[in-house]
Write a protein that binds this DNA or RNA. Structure first.
Length: 162
DNA sequence: CGAATGATCCGA
DNA sequence: CGGATCATTCGA
């Protein structure tokens, strides 16, 4: 679950699709070529946000996962609406749509996701048989390897591409 | 399939 | 500085 108390009121979504990114070992990662101003949050402590602009018009929201000093994050690629977001089950399917629906931009990068208007919370466990593991999407490099670091909930409408 | 659209990054 | 790149989406 991701909860956002922002300008649009209290919003809540159930995350159903994510991708993992690492650092210097992962050619697909923004952190691959070292730390920059933009990617600095990826190298910071876990539990914080990393939001960036892609293709000049969409934002992507990540959760930093590794300990301070080690790059790693999870890209939020799809979710189901839970509260405050209407009832289009596809409105959050895809990282760009997810960020747009919540109104998240680079202004929300590097936030503490445990003590902010933007928080990530526990949710009921998804049974293993409903968890699909696949190759990552949209990468020029890194998807061609054996890195199946995309995970999504089987047959959820919030998944970008099954 | 390709256009949209702008921040970022690297090389010169 | 300039140009290539880009963890995407939408519409023809």
């Amino acid at each position: 679950m991701l909860v956002y108390d922002g300008p649009r009121g209290p919003l809540a979504i159930r995350l159903v699709e994510v991708e993992a990114y690492r650092g210097l070992r992962d050619p697909a990662s923004h952190a691959y070529r070292g730390k920059t101003a933009r990617t600095a949050p990826m190298f910071g402590p876990p539990g914080r946000s990393y939001v960036y602009l892609v293709y000049g018009m969409y934002h992507c929201v990540n959760v930093v996962t590794e300990r301070d000093g080690v790059a790693g994050a999870v890209l939020l690629r799809g979710a189901e609406p839970v509260a405050g977001l209407g009832d289009d089950p596809r409105a959050l399917a895809g990282p760009g749509r997810l960020a747009r629906a919540l109104g998240l931009t680079t202004f929300q990068t590097d936030l503490d996701l445990l003590h902010s208007p933007l928080t990530i919370r526990d949710a009921p466990a998804v049974p293993d048989r409903l968890v699909v593991r696949a190759r990552r999407i949209g990468l020029r490099e890194g998807a061609t390897r054996k890195r199946r670091w995309r995970f999504y909930v089987k047959s959820s409408p919030g998944v970008s591409r099954p």
